[in-house]
Design a protein around this nucleic acid. Structure first.
Lengths: 190, 190
DNA sequence: AATTATTCTTGATAAAGATCAAGAAATCAG
DNA sequence: CTGATTTCTTGATCTTTATCAAGAATAATT
């Protein structure tokens, strides 16, 4: 199984191996330089990517400061679902924090996935439910946990990320200031 | 168009009128007394409901106190997607805050929807993306807004709810204590 | 390697929100 | 209707987190 196929399988669990093969053939390899954009807010999102190497940051720029919604690494899937599937302007900007290698799936090729894999809609539905559930959990963390607790949880699950990206983005993603994150981390080392 | 059909149409926008008819026929009418449960955490969720009248509260009970994840009124759809579609134990308890009339769709009937409506999987996918996007917005509100701002936003969008349910649940759903909500509301009236 | 820019840390202070406690108001049950 | 229960409000206080500012550390650029 290729690297890409492994990632696809991790998302669409019950996919068959021959289908996996057909699906992965629809992806293309591309790269992004550090600072390059995969998607800009306001534009229409016409592709999905799976990250092979590097880090992408999903963020929005409301009135004042940037707000980092998510940081995606190796194996993560990146897109603006709403923009991609409803063909509306994207709310998110997706930018490379490091040089990045991507497997991308264009919209025309995305449409072909359904032709190639009969049970695709079922797999896709289950995948979206998984995404939905992950967001439910994240909301729950904001309703029931302190900044420190959210940090600890995130750190245990993503500690590889901490030497790859500026901490200020992680702070924003966790809903705290960089100063607060710094102080929490100082505490945690004792 | 019946009331139920209107609700269904609001979720699955591009549904055809004859399909709407077939789909609504798969729902059954039930009621819940105040305090009654639509779903209990740990049980398998085997149905979906659309609320005709009354209010349901979706909550979890972690270590200490209850956390209200969501409050659903007239026209809202209630279920634990993850439990319903993956057949896993539910994480949420769903309880009636008032006497409630529901349109419910059992799992067997849910499966029939796909047979009755050819484009169902596409409609369902778009619906799930809408749910996903709503949660993204909610996370965003926790990353970029104060308690007061979250209250104001929610109040403008759901002010009918405020004379129907105890404020303490709304406070929990917005991620603040009842005391804080009370103080914010006092401010807002001047 | 030296300069510049960015990021991180630390301290002092302010503001937001939580907690605890008690009384008022509203709701519920008999 | 009445007593009991729940919910809401208010005050006092404490904790958490944000803000502002400045220096240290790190990374990027030439």
């Amino acid at each position: 199984m290729t690297e890409l196929e492994q990632y696809i399988k991790s998302y669409f669990e019950n996919i068959q191996s021959d289908e996996l093969n057909k699906m992965s053939a629809l992806f293309e390899s591309t790269t992004l330089k550090k600072g390059g954009y995969f998607l800009k807010a306001g534009k229409h999102c016409d592709k999905i990517c799976i990250i092979q190497t590097g880090v992408l940051r999903v963020f929005a720029i409301p009135d004042k400061e940037e707000v980092t919604q998510w940081i995606a690494t190796k194996g993560y899937l990146g897109t603006d679902f709403s923009s991609f599937l409803y063909d509306t302007p994207s709310r998110w900007t997706i930018q490379a924090l490091t040089d990045t290698e991507l497997f991308t799936l264009s919209k025309p090729n995305y449409r072909k996935v359904g032709e190639v894999i009969p049970q695709w809609t079922e797999l896709e539905k289950l995948f979206l439910v998984k995404c939905f559930t992950a967001l439910e959990n994240r909301i729950f963390s904001h309703l029931s946990m302190t900044a420190e607790e959210r940090y600890n949880l995130f750190f245990t699950q993503n500690n590889d990320l901490f030497n790859q990206v500026p901490l200020k983005y992680i702070a924003s993603m966790l809903g705290m200031t960089p100063e607060t994150l710094s102080r929490i981390r100082k505490k945690a080392t004792f």
